[in-house]
Simulated assay, not measured.
Amino acid sequence: MIRFKNLTKRFEDGGGIADFSFEVEEGEVFGLVGSKGSGKTTALRMLMGFEYPTKGRCAINGKDCVRAASYLHRMTGYLPDGFSLPAVLTGRQFLRSNAEMRGMRNLENLFNTAKKLDLNIDRKIGDMTSADVQKTGIVCALMHNPPVILLDNPFRNLDSRTRSVLVDLILEEKEKGKMVILTSDTVDIADLTCDRVGLLDKGSIVYLGDVENMRENMYRSYLIQFGSSRSAMQFAKEAFEIKSMKDRNLVVSVQGELLPLVRALANYHVTSIEPVPLSLEETFVHIYGGLHAEHTDSETGFFD
């Protein structure tokens, strides 16, 4: 079990996290979602023992993350956000070096994960794209089959195909009974991968709950293109919230299940339908009941 108990970290510049209290069980994927500066990175660094708490504590399987940091590092797969790797080494050399430090003899998981991510590990890191550097970091975090996985913004720089592969990898780790915490600045990622989610604002958890509940309360927007402007105008009279309309195109907002929308669209000639990304601010308003918008600038700011 990963446990946060009244965990607080305050930096001299006023940043940090405030009063984190929640647990992550085996076989659970937990998402920390918030904008840049909300405290996501600080939370993971506390679990790694890289930062000391101002108050409270965090522990993994009963081991204090500060006192037992060296021991916990051996059982944890960690992907930092915005990391850099030695440019002169190939991916293979870097990964083998990390494997040797961990005393790994069987590298099958390393090579399998790299293959799934379509990563050429024989390329020099200095010649890699930002996406391939990110893939290398992911392989390094997962290759030793750790029971605890901490992924800070893991979908950064990845294309849609690789994102899909990473979602599958995370869900595979969940099925093995791993404890996974990942961070994201979008709710969509948490919706795809997580069992529960914590929404962060200025270092505080303003919403903590399961993804199913979040999904039921979320509004989703879709850009729908009809066969004609006449059809679009007719559909606009249906009992849905229309956010915008132009010619044959309109954006409709739906809360919860999509089945009513699908049934209504079956009566129209629709040429395309695409999801419109929901901003994090909109997510706070929909899920947190609008209280997020009531925060004032005079409050203490917390940053990653």
Rank of each mutant, 00 (worst) to 15 (best):
K9V: 15
R10T: 12
R10W: 01
F22P: 00
E23N: 09
V24C: 03
G34N: 04
K40W: 01
L44K: 07
L47M: 11
M48Q: 00
F50C: 14
F50T: 10
Y52R: 15
P53H: 06
T54C: 07
C58F: 01
R67I: 00
D81R: 07
D81V: 08
V88H: 15
L89N: 11
T90R: 12
S97Q: 13
R102A: 09
M104N: 06
E108D: 14
L110E: 07
T113N: 08
D118F: 11
D127L: 12
S130G: 04
V133C: 13
V133N: 14
G137M: 08
V139Y: 08
D152Q: 05
F155A: 15
N157D: 01
L158F: 00
D168N: 10
E173D: 03
E175S: 11
T186G: 11
V187I: 14
D188H: 11
I189K: 09
D191I: 13
L192S: 11
L192G: 01
T193C: 10
R196Y: 09
L199W: 02
L200Y: 01
I205L: 09
V206R: 05
Y207S: 11
G209W: 06
G209N: 10
E216Y: 12
E216D: 12
Y219H: 13
S221P: 05
M233L: 10
M233H: 03
M233C: 06
A236G: 03
K237V: 12
A239E: 15
L261D: 06
V262A: 08
R263D: 08
N267H: 11
S272K: 10
I273D: 04
I273G: 05
L280V: 08
L280G: 06
T283L: 13
D297R: 04
F302A: 10
D304A: 05
